Simulated scan of single mutants.
Amino acid sequence: MYLNIKRDAIFVADSHYNEKRLEFRIFLEKLQSGEVKCSQLFLMGDIFDFIAGEIDFFIKQNQDIIDKINELSNNLEVVYLEGNHDFNLKKLFPKVLIIERKKQPVFAKYGEKSVKIAHGDIFTPWHYNLYCSIIRNHYLLKILNFLDFNYLISKKVYYTLIEKNICRKMEDFNSFAKNRVKNYNSDIIIEGHYHEGKSYEHDKKLYVNIPSLCCDKKYFRLADRFIGENL
């Protein structure tokens, strides 16, 4: 898969949207009103605190946000890289380009620069990869949805996630970024997942970790050399 990144493209990552973290709703409303403008939107994963295409409770909880994304996708190009909190999304977003974890990183171009884009939970140990395969299994999720009487399972997951502290920073970002760069063969690497909101240059490669929208209240435009724009 090949993408051409437009100059006004916006990248949003890790908003972990729920009833307490409303930043993504605010962002979408600013897009709808024209206060924030772009012709291309990259949703970099973990946009919702949790959602899967098979689980009724989380679809109902987030229907308004789903509708807003679909409305925007009528007028601008939306690319959604599935994360570890949001997956099996194709049926929810018919006009959005959905990129599953197994198809990441995706190759893109920005001017003359080559770019690789991923949510970030790739190049990981085998046991994490196995876990990711299991939790994305369509039939397993359908069974769990069937057994979710009165949404007891979903509500347990929901209230566990809503209390989780996700706004922590790593102590040595540069060492982390240097190791991440080794997995890629492009001029620019763009990831979310780690909530850092920092960049690192090594061996003529630029690594950028997009900030968490809910933690840093920022999104990014590649044209601004990854200077965050406040929500």
Rank of each mutant, 00 (worst) to 15 (best):
I66S: 06
D86G: 10
P105V: 10
I98E: 00
K68N: 13
N84S: 05
T124C: 11
D64A: 10
K68P: 12
V79W: 05
D121M: 03
L72M: 01
W126Y: 15
K95G: 00
V96W: 00
D56M: 05
V96A: 08
I122H: 06
A118L: 07
D56A: 08
K113L: 01
K91M: 08
D121N: 03
W126L: 15
I99P: 12
A108L: 05
T124I: 12
Y80G: 06
E54N: 01
N88M: 00
N70L: 13
K116Y: 09
E82K: 02
N129K: 08
K95L: 14
E54K: 05
L97V: 15
K60P: 07
P94I: 01
R101T: 04
L97I: 14
G120H: 13
G111A: 10
L97M: 14
N84D: 07
H119E: 02
A118T: 07
G83M: 00
N84K: 02
V115W: 04
I117H: 11
F107T: 13
E100M: 09
I65C: 07
Q63T: 14
L89N: 02
G120N: 13
F58E: 01
I117W: 09
I122A: 05
S73I: 12
I117D: 03
E77V: 13
N62V: 10
E71L: 14
I117N: 03
L76D: 03
F93T: 13
D67I: 05
N70P: 07
I66R: 04
I99R: 02
I59W: 05
N74V: 01
F123D: 04
K116V: 07
R101F: 00
N75D: 08
F58T: 00
F93E: 06
F123A: 00
L76I: 14
A118P: 07
D67F: 06
H85K: 08
K116L: 10
D121S: 01
Y128L: 13
F58G: 02
G120Q: 14
D64G: 08
I98V: 03
N129C: 04
L89Q: 00
L92M: 08
E54G: 04
N74E: 06
K68S: 14
I66Y: 02
P125I: 15
L92K: 11
